[in-house]
Design a protein around this nucleic acid. Structure first.
Lengths: 191, 191
DNA sequence: TTGAAACTATACAGACCTGTATGTATAATT
DNA sequence: AATTATACATACAGGTCTGTATAGTTTCAA
């Protein structure tokens, strides 16, 4: 247990710092200091800062996606309500006190080269999110599920950006209202 | 002229590097090397890297906004067509070979602290964009101009993010189609 | 032509970065 | 009790970063 919890503790502290200060803005020494561990302990568990960052991105991916999908599932049962519940879940996320934006948007922004591994991790993460939205859209059964999921995906990303930049008062709410209109427009013909 | 063009040249080279590699990822020495000027010349025109970055952000703001509004104006005359033309302009932007995403999203991502000046610059820039969309929306004359502009703003940000992360094939087109639906829904009652 | 302003080249200070080296303490296992 | 794995503290190597110092050179206008 001591072994595992140490590694997890380091990763936890590092994740908080990466989220707050960015990846390049956070030095290994600061992670060591705030974790209150020896530098060699960190390098024992993570051979390089790069490995630590990749572990951080993987953790963010796992945690965020499982939280998001669970939050949607707990809020709604029908496909249509689940599509809308996505925006309520986003609203909850945006309202968290320690909200620091989407880790993957920030990672991809810091490392703009599409060939960079961090950028690739962000790309993969967002494709999963898109696939999730597409899956919910198909369950809803509209005539053109692709068009609906494409537009809802853009609303999700837009709401996240607005929350990060604080350029809209309640982006999740605005996005939800727009989603309602789009969903109504794409609604499957009544049987 | 020699004076001014040197300063502009340095800023031009620095802007390209900031866009490609990020702000923290670009060192002063590289700007000096690629500008083919002496380091002291740079520090003569820009007292610190911070001043250089702020000049870069100001320049991006001016250039992008004037380009975007001119592009919209050249594409459409009526308020409704102008709202839609925003997405055609975005599509043109995304298709540029040297497209590197929104400089302000990246700056705000690199410097996540809302109190940081770069973050503030990004915030101001996005508020201007939002105000522009709100102005176009009001010209269109819908019953609820706020709701329309809020939703279109989210589509714009979402499309930019999708273009940056390459998570959608033609984000501007998808955004435009969603915008058509939203605009139709908010259309003013025919007189 | 002369003199001031701008530019150049080179070197370097001091801080910070990642990663390593070294030796010690502690705790579990054999 | 001896061995092994883990964590500890400290120091430092080698590089990069921003910014400065210094001295020589070009440019251009009076």
């Amino acid at each position: 247990m001591a072994n595992k919890s140490k590694k997890e503790h380091i990763l936890h502290v590092a994740s908080g710092l990466f989220n707050k200060q960015g990846i390049r803005g956070t030095g290994v020494d600061q992670v060591v200091a705030e974790s209150k561990i020896a530098k060699m302990t960190l390098y024992n568990h993570f051979p390089s800062k790069d490995d630590l960052v990749l572990a951080y991105l993987t953790k963010q991916d796992d945690e965020w996606r499982s939280w998001f999908e669970a939050s949607v599932d707990s809020r709604a049962q029908t496909p249509k309500d689940k599509l809308l519940a996505m925006f309520d879940a986003l609203g909850e996320w945006f309202g968290e006190k320690e909200f620091t934006g989407c880790a993957f948007i920030k990672a991809a922004s810091e490392f703009g080269d599409p060939a960079h591994p961090y950028h690739g991790a962000a790309h993969g993460y967002k494709l999963n999110l898109r696939a999730y939205i597409a899956s919910l859209s198909e369950d809803f059964g509209p005539a053109d599920p692709g068009a609906l999921s494409d537009s809802l995906y853009l609303l999700v990303e837009g709401a996240i950006m607005a929350a990060m930049l604080q350029t809209a008062a309640r982006p999740a709410l605005h996005a939800r209202r727009a989603a309602e209109i789009l969903i109504a427009h794409h609604a499957p013909a009544a049987v």
